[in-house]
Design a protein around this nucleic acid. Structure first.
Lengths: 230, 230
DNA sequence: CGCCCTTCGATTGTCTAACAAGTACACATG
DNA sequence: CATGTGTACTTGTTAGACAATCGAAGGGCG
């Protein structure tokens, strides 16, 4: 069933485009987005632009107070830690549940294959399948509210991932290998170990990103010892 | 610092009023809310009413598809289970963390006192402090994203609580006693037992509500044996 | 007599134009 | 230098309008 035609509303279309521009870095941190600007660049009425902006604000990609211009969020080290810890919070429990039922989500398997297929020259292309790997795990528990909660985090998570990739903070092969190991641990029913590996996986990305932003990196930033040894 | 003055926008004010009308049951399940209706009852322009409605849709209190009138959500048994399981998912892990640090949130203690102070004749008054008890626990972990995720669930949770209370499915004293026990278990550092009690606490409410809605109640609906014995 | 199709009313999506209200920054004043 | 004022920009809200769409009611046809 290849993507049935979708007649999305104008505000949704604009929101989607703005979103991708934020992810691609075309709209950098702190950049202002006035309603009039958006309205004129997309040639729509201001209320329509307003609605799009408010959508992105709700997603956490834009910041704005009453009567103030919306700006692209500026994630500080504390926010990054907050985001990654919230992720770990949800995802580690998910891994335990999946492992107890030994259910390996097909979507996650496919996503990890897609990561492997990405040429090393285009680091930003890893973001989409990486994100998909993790959302597939969440969705596999079959609870629509949990999925929705995770969705409310996805915007910011993806922003972090984009930063990690464009700064070359992680090797694609390592990401892919750890994902693979996670899937194996699920299949073997070893939930606690899967959760532990996830903590390593996320902790490293987190602390490296924090360090790259000028924060004080924690010890999680280093590579696993067996790989360092080579 | 008693509630600093807040100049809320009109759409926010209308959203708040609609919300309370949904919680109070004045707007029953499936009731239609057209933009024009809302606009005329509050004497505002239609776009303003539209924005308010969309806010409630985002909160999960209203349902609506493109070009269709917004309606108050009609929670079926599956949705109720989904909601309560998502709650348990987040809250049980929170209890473990709080117990490991033996941090008893002051807000939760106060909220439970407020529950005790409610006269038995007004069951709906229990909802607010009950909700506050649980949000206090979540907020106590100090992760703003986790709090935000829980917020995205709160609307529906509160709707369920209102149903439970107006149908007299649970005794106030029992709720209050179990909350008290949860706090004690946290203080004693017994995280697993706290999580277990929470499962009982939520499971009973969940299955009784499901049963009251015509679904097949699970075994969790029964009272704890020590209380049944009297 | 029942079913399909058309038509119509109601409702939402979007637009234009406009005014009110608030913020931020430069400027003038003490 | 601190303070107040003012002005430009931006957002909040309104009014009215038109197109697109959905749901139901009614008429035609088998």
């Amino acid at each position: 069933m290849p993507g049935r035609i979708a007649a999305v509303s104008i505000v949704e279309a604009i929101a989607a485009d703005l979103r991708s521009r934020v992810f691609s870095g075309e709209l950098g941190s702190g950049e202002a987005l006035t309603e009039t600007d958006v309205a004129s660049t997309y040639e729509v009425a201001r209320p329509t632009a307003k609605a799009s902006i408010e959508k992105l604000v709700a997603e956490g990609l834009l910041d704005r107070g009453t009567h103030k211009t919306a700006r692209v969020v500026d994630l500080g080290p504390e926010s990054v830690r907050d985001i990654y810890l919230a992720r770990a919070y949800l995802e580690s429990e998910v891994l335990r549940r999946l492992a107890s039922g030994r259910t390996v989500p097909a979507g996650a398997v496919q996503a990890n294959k897609d990561i492997a297929a990405v040429k090393s020259g285009a680091p930003l292309d890893v973001v989409e399948p990486d994100m998909r790997f993790h959302t597939s795990l969440i969705d596999a528990v079959g609870n629509t509210r949990i999925s929705k909660m995770y969705r409310s985090l996805v915007g910011e998570v993806r922003l972090c991932m984009s930063r990690v990739q464009s700064l070359h903070l992680l090797d694609t092969a390592l990401i892919q290998a750890e994902h693979q190991r996670l899937l194996e641990l699920i299949e073997e029913g070893r939930g606690d170990e899967a959760a532990g590996l996830l903590d390593v996986h996320l902790g490293r990305a987190r602390e490296r990103l924090v360090a790259a932003m000028g924060g004080e990196a924690g010890p999680e930033a280093q590579l696993p010892s067996d790989l360092v040894a080579e």
